[in-house]
Nucleic acid binder design. Structure first.
Lengths: 188, 188
DNA sequence: GCAGATAGTAGCGTTACCTAACTATATTGA
DNA sequence: TCAATATAGTTAGGTAACGCTACTATCTGC
């Protein structure tokens, strides 16, 4: 029952959650928090992941809720909806130009700016620590989430990239996108 | 427009917010996310801050919303409500024994455990970085939030602690509690 | 005192969120 | 090949979060 030296795990966890909320303080912009989250997700997810289920997983909510949020964004002209050619059950969501412009007004920018003012080394260190936490959490759930560049399924041969799971070639620029199927590399 | 080296501020911000949400993944326990947040707040706030407005500020929401969340917790036996002697307009909220026991099942514990598994030095570093971000955000808003031990209003004389703003003595144990009036020390 | 600020509540409408039920397509396997 | 099962997505219904406005009560400053 002795207090831990320095910061305890719970303090850290509270700090993290609190910061995540405070970032939106007094936002009130043109979209709700969930809608902003969806826009950010579809802006950064790769072509295998820009689906309703993908967002539901990322946002840790149900498909029903995700479906509702997506619908509101489609109706308001932020997302384009098309059927997947890979899977007849899936729909693919893509950002419209309007959505890309709107992302510039994302209330999260305030936090992003604050983070951008950190020393580059410190920022990288922070990101690394947060990702370590994320991977650890992801393990205990099904999901997890990260970019191909750090994914255990990525195969590289020379300058070519390939996803071993989907068995498809990846453009270099795609390796920085978020993927549903992300799994931390074991040796990482 | 060139990509920043390493992690950009926006990536970091997204990571942070995402982690804050993912921590609750599949929680679904006996309370909602807002209710857990309230319980945590009232467990950690000092006697000047255990009010509806205090929680509203901390949780970055309106007093109306905070009032509703608090009411639900009082009705369900998690919080005790009493009028403040210092200020006739205020009510003071205190956790019941049931609430303290319930906090053991806080879904945030999963993240807290993950954080607790980090190396102690790394954890302190992480907490420090997050607090730096928080202070920077707090500045641009009115609020801000932190513990007396790091507050600019704290005066210490020998082993005695005192809040210069409220002009009251503080018990040593109270200096680890959250305060509404927290202001980062200028020289920090 | 009186004006203006602040603490809290109440009511309204929108949205998030969950659950459960449902359709349609994929996958599995006997 | 065909039936069982799993998965993608939608819909409906209910609770609570959330912001807004309006309101009362108390406090603070002049």
């Amino acid at each position: 029952m002795a207090a831990e030296r320095g910061s305890s795990g719970s303090e850290l966890a509270e700090l993290l959650v609190h910061l995540g909320r405070a970032a939106y303080a007094g936002a009130g912009g043109e979209l709700t928090a969930a809608q902003w989250a969806a826009l950010r997700y579809f802006a950064r997810a790769n072509r295998f992941s820009r689906t309703v289920s993908g967002f539901a997983d990322y946002h840790a909510t149900t498909r029903g809720t995700a479906s509702q949020t997506v619908r509101s964004l489609v109706e308001r002209g932020y997302l384009l909806r098309s059927r997947s050619e890979r899977d007849g059950r899936s729909v693919v969501l893509d950002l419209t130009g309007r959505a890309r412009r709107t992302l510039g007004a994302d209330p999260l920018q305030r936090l992003a700016l604050a983070a951008g003012r950190l020393d580059a080394r410190r920022r990288d260190r922070l990101a690394e620590d947060l990702r370590a936490l994320q991977d650890q959490l992801g393990q205990s759930r099904g999901g997890g989430c990260g970019v191909c560049a750090r994914c255990g399924h990525l195969l590289r041969g020379g300058r070519e990239f390939r996803c071993g799971l989907m068995d498809e070639a990846l453009d270099a620029s795609e390796t920085g996108e978020i993927c549903l199927r992300y799994r931390p590399r074991p040796d990482d």
